[in-house]
Measured scan of single mutants.
Amino acid sequence: SFNTVDEWLEAIKMGQYKESFANAGFTSFDVVSQMMMEDILRVGVTLAGHQKKILNSIQVMRAQMN
């Protein structure tokens, strides 16, 4: 498990989005775990492969939080 959203993004090789997530207010796992595709688009993730990777990881995160 990760301590910060930045660490999580690095771990899934999506570190290039750290600033975008932070600027959009997605700075805690409570918020990130609620993200939908529209949120991912809003933070500027436009590549389908990256969207899928982030969404898949969020689903895993949700499962671990319950």
Rank of each mutant, 00 (worst) to 15 (best):
V45W: 01
Q16C: 08
V31K: 15
T4L: 06
I54T: 00
A48Q: 10
E10M: 10
Q34C: 09
S1H: 13
R42S: 10
A24Y: 12
I58N: 01
V32Q: 00
F2S: 06
N3T: 12
L55D: 03
K52E: 14
M65H: 07
N56Q: 14
G15P: 08
V45T: 02
V32D: 01
G25I: 02
S1I: 13
T27Q: 08
S28Y: 04
N23Y: 09
G44F: 02
V5K: 01
V45G: 01
V5Y: 03
G49C: 13
I12T: 04
M36H: 14
A22W: 10
I58A: 03
I58M: 03
Q34P: 03
A63D: 15
M37R: 09
V60G: 08
E19P: 06
G15F: 06
Y17S: 01
N23A: 14
G15W: 06
N66K: 09
I40E: 00
M14N: 01
F29T: 04
V32H: 02
F29V: 06
S1K: 14
N23D: 10
Q16F: 07
L9M: 04
N56Y: 15
L47W: 07
D30T: 12
S33K: 10
V60F: 13
L9T: 00
F26A: 05
R42P: 01
A48C: 09
S1E: 11
K53D: 09
M36C: 11
Q51Y: 05
K52P: 01
F26R: 03
S20K: 13
K52V: 13
I40P: 01
T46W: 07
N56G: 09
I40R: 00
S1D: 12
E7Q: 10
K13F: 12
E7S: 09
A11V: 08
M37D: 05
L9V: 02
M36T: 15
A22S: 10
Y17E: 00
L9H: 00
A63P: 05
M35G: 01
V32Y: 02
A24G: 09
T4D: 08
M37Y: 11
M36L: 12
M35D: 00
M37N: 05
L47V: 13
S57Q: 09
M36G: 15
R42M: 10
R62S: 07
M65E: 06
Q16N: 06
M37V: 10
L55P: 00
F29C: 04
F2V: 07
D39N: 03
F29N: 02
K13D: 14
E38G: 10
R42N: 10
Q16H: 06
M61L: 14
E38I: 10
R42H: 10
Q64D: 10
I40M: 09
I58L: 08
K53W: 15
Q64L: 11
I58G: 00
Y17G: 01
G49P: 13
